[in-house]
């Protein structure tokens, strides 16, 4: 493996998902129809992972992901592979789009690694660039499933946390240096008691692990719970800013934000490619608050890129990389 040294400041990264390549879509379909085994499925998806990694490297992203090509849905993927879940009946997400919402029917237990293999494969072909190990968090899995087994949400989330911890331990054992937990559901209920529910689960999941710990949350009114987020046992919060026009920034100042920040500078819901200047201006805006310095700022999109056309996703990433390079020069890091 060639080695790669991360820049000292304005590290560029991604949140995780990438537009699905046809190879992955096809493999998902065939797996659903039981035409291929899990092993064949993984193998078929490798072609897609290679393409994802190539796009990231071409764009020049420092800290990449495997693009979540094997995950049709961020909760169903894990529910299908943990003990205790059954894949339930059809529930609507929007319009006429339905998905099979998982049901907790028994005690949740870890069976075998779920996302580790994809991560490991991406890491093996990334030419030394670190690959984030990314999993869906226990709050989101709980919130987007039905529960017919546990008496309380507390019990359920703690068992999920214990099971997911085993998954993370395995990734760290195999060399993952960056671990990211995705919790999009948390922003739908930005109340202190919900934030505390996740805090206890994160402690269970992450204590004592030797890796950089990142929590990604997006699209919601997080200002209501920033003080709680600051208590979380993670090194970095990765948040959406561009889509909500950087509305959160003053709140970071107000609550004395001091962690590393994954700074969402391009909108994944918009087809317009943000300019380099726009991205740099967003960074100036953050630096002007004088809460964290360039070493603690990671530049990335607001959220996963999966819903964007690939060409637009690439262009957005390229401009993030260009902006980061210019910024490093300006601030004396290159």
């Amino acid at each position: 493996m060639t080695s790669y040294t991360l820049p000292k400041a304005f590290i560029t990264t991604v949140v995780g998902s990438y537009p699905k390549f046809p190879e992955a879509k096809d493999a998902l379909e065939r797996r659903k129809r039981n035409e291929i085994s899990e092993e064949e499925f993984r193998k078929a998806c490798r072609v897609a992972i290679e393409k994802v990694v190539r796009d990231y490297l071409d764009a020049g992203i420092d800290l990449i992901s495997d693009g979540e090509q094997t995950r049709e849905d961020m909760v169903v993927f894990f529910a299908e592979r943990l003990k205790g879940f059954e894949i339930g009946d059809w529930v609507r997400i929007f319009d006429n789009m339905y998905f099979r919402k998982p049901v907790v029917k028994d005690k949740i237990e870890f069976v075998s690694p779920m996302a580790v293999e994809d991560w490991e494969y991406a890491q093996s072909i990334s030419q030394g660039r670190p690959v984030k190990f990314i999993i869906t968090g226990p709050y989101t899995i709980l919130d987007w499933s039905f529960n017919l087994y546990y008496k309380s949400r507390e019990d359920l989330i703690m068992d999920l946390a214990r099971a997911l911890r085993k998954e993370i331990e395995e990734a760290v054992r195999r060399g993952a240096k960056f671990v990211q937990i995705d919790e999009p559901a948390l922003s739908t209920r930005p109340y202190p008691e919900e934030a505390q529910l996740l805090r206890d689960a994160l402690r269970e999941m992450l204590h004592g692990l030797d890796c950089k710990k990142i929590l990604h949350i997006c699209f919601g009114r997080l200002e209501k719970i920033i003080p709680h987020l600051l208590e979380y046992p993670v090194d970095q919060l990765d948040l959406e800013f561009k889509n909500s026009n950087f509305r959160l920034l003053p709140f970071l100042k107000e609550y004395g934000y001091n962690k590393e920040l994954g700074y969402g500078v391009v909108d994944v819901h918009s087809l317009r490619v943000e300019t380099v200047k726009e991205i740099k201006d967003a960074v100036y805006m953050l630096l002007k608050l004088d809460i964290i310095g360039p070493e603690k700022i990671y530049l990335d999109p607001d959220c996963g890129l999966k819903r964007l056309p690939r060409e637009i996703a690439i262009e957005k990433l390229r401009n993030i990389v260009r902006a980061a390079k210019e910024l490093r020069k300006e601030y004396g890091y290159e």
Partner: peptide, 14 residues
Amino acid sequence: DGLLRYFDNNFFYR
């Protein structure tokens, strides 16, 4: 226009 989350649900409205 695009989809937005409908209150605290994992359901989206246009």
